[in-house]
Amino acid sequence: MATSRFLRYVESRKNLTGGAAGLAGLALTFTGLAGAYWPVVVAGLYGAGALLAPPERPDAPPFTDPSEQLDELRGDFEQLMAYLGEVDLPPAAAGRLAELTETLAALLEPGWVTDALAVDPEAVHTLSRAVRQDIPESVDTFVRTRWWTRLQPGTEPPERHLERQLTVLHDEAHALATALREAESRRQETHTRYLEDRGKH
């Protein structure tokens, strides 16, 4: 650890700049300008150079590109659909879930839609949360709660909570799709104005 730290300092900007300043001090020594205090001059110039050197800039962490995140998310969505295909849901919840997954599938379809998503990290996060957390948790909780309800009848039917949860998630996905559509509409209107203004000149 100490050796690697030493090697990093040897290659650092501070050491290289200080070394260059120290060499300038040696040059002054050889010309006789530093006099008898040449060690102090060399050390002082080295220290000044090290202090004036720009700080080291660590490399930014290589986070996954949004488009790569969407590629991974498509694979997770396929796994989610396979899981949902094995779950027996009441008709109302199944219908709401079908609407939700249809919207998510459209948003994850490769092409211009995902190109628009890739520049909106918050949208990617919303989709990722729905696919990887919200939907599987809602369905799994329903399955487990339904089993207990059969043992203790008379409690509130768990499918009501599932339907409400899926409705909220569907509204989120629909709002995301609407925002993307409105962004494209604004882009089209902007281009129209640009062409009209260009034609006036």
Rank of each mutant, 00 (worst) to 15 (best):
L73N: 01
Q152L: 14
D88N: 05
A94G: 06
P136N: 05
F142P: 02
L26V: 11
L16I: 10
D59E: 13
L151K: 15
L80V: 04
F30P: 00
T31Y: 14
R160T: 13
H161N: 13
Q152D: 10
T141S: 11
R96F: 01
E56Q: 15
L166G: 02
V40S: 11
T29H: 14
R129H: 05
R8T: 04
Q188A: 15
L23W: 08
F6A: 15
R5D: 07
P91R: 07
E122I: 07
G35V: 03
R193G: 09
S185T: 09
R8Y: 05
A36L: 08
L162K: 05
A177H: 08
S185L: 15
L180P: 01
A173M: 13
L107G: 01
A118D: 10
L162H: 06
G95A: 11
K200Q: 12
S185M: 15
F63C: 05
Y194M: 04
P54I: 00
P39R: 04
L70A: 00
R181H: 13
L73D: 01
A105V: 03
R96S: 09
R8N: 07
R187I: 07
R96T: 13
V10S: 01
L89Y: 12
T145K: 11
R129N: 04
Y194D: 02
E156N: 09
K200I: 05
R132N: 13
R8H: 13
V113S: 07
